[in-house]
């Protein structure tokens, strides 16, 4: 119960609104440009890397928390942040290691769960 009392509801609201707004940008891209979902994901992750590298995205993260880190923009920003930090610590080698290292958890989880799901699940038709 202590945990529920510790939740910052204003923080949660900011997270909800910012996360939702980022998704609206994606929805407008889907409906207005006929881009496939793969291209939209690429646009988001690349934009995230650029905004992260320029340090702009950190302000959004500070404001909205997971509302900024959970969308793919945050995945991109995290890649950039990792690359920069590691590059500053260990030079050129770090530039190669940093990005993937920072996002390794997510990538490994997606690959592992993907493999796991394929063992169990069977393809099914969409009903609508």
């Amino acid at each position: 119960m202590d945990f529920f009392q510790s939740i910052d509801w204003m923080q949660l609201l900011r997270c909800f609104v910012v996360g939702g707004l980022i998704c609206i940008i994606g929805q407008i891209l889907i409906d207005k440009t006929k881009l496939t979902s793969a291209r939209i994901l690429v646009i988001f992750v690349t934009t995230g890397v650029i905004l992260g590298a320029l340090g702009i995205y950190q302000y959004v993260i500070d404001f909205a928390g997971c509302g900024a880190t959970v969308p793919l923009l945050g995945f991109g920003a995290n890649l950039a942040k990792g690359a920069i930090t590691e590059a500053q610590n260990s030079g050129l080698l770090g530039a190669f290691i940093g990005g993937v290292k920072a996002s390794a958890g997510g990538i490994a989880a997606a690959v592992f769960f993907g493999y796991l799901a394929s063992l169990i699940a069977k393809p099914k038709i969409k009903k609508q």
Binding site: I30, K34, T36, S37, A121, P123, K124, I125, K126
Partner: peptide, 20 residues
Amino acid sequence: HFCSAEKQFRFPLELGNQRP
């Protein structure tokens, strides 16, 4: 066949996309 055609021409059936 809907499923074999989707698989060959479009996306996997489980992909959560919207059809135009």
